[in-house]
Amino acid sequence: MQILGLYNYWIFIVLMMCGFYVVISRGNLVKKLVGLNIFQTSVFILYISMGKIAGGTAPILTGMATIYSNPVPHVLILTAIVVGIATTALGLALVVRIHEAYGTIEEDEIHAQSEDEAL
């Protein structure tokens, strides 16, 4: 129980770190955004799993159940998902503009082009 009680959280941290690794080690901007989204989704799962009560059910009051899981993280994450897709779309729009301006979405090539211009 000592181990099992925290096992879930460790898996979520592994998932977060996968996303984080993609963000900091890859130069491709679209892949960075995918990594950021994986990171984000893992944080969502972490929050939702904190709201779970063993033996509980979904927080819809039907009168048949006595234990409900905590609805507060659900509300928080519900709105966060929609805000997340909106900001992701903004990021993708920036990627499209960067591709139009530089002709590439690789980070190091963009840096090289900017340095060439500065010289």
């Binding site: 979904a58 819809i60 519900l78 709105t79 998902i81 929609v82 897709i85």
Partner: peptide
């Protein structure tokens, strides 16, 4: 109001 759902999901 009664089941799962709401404005965010419906809009999407």
């Amino acid at each position: 109001d009664f089941g799962p759902g709401g404005g965010f999901q419906a809009g999407v």
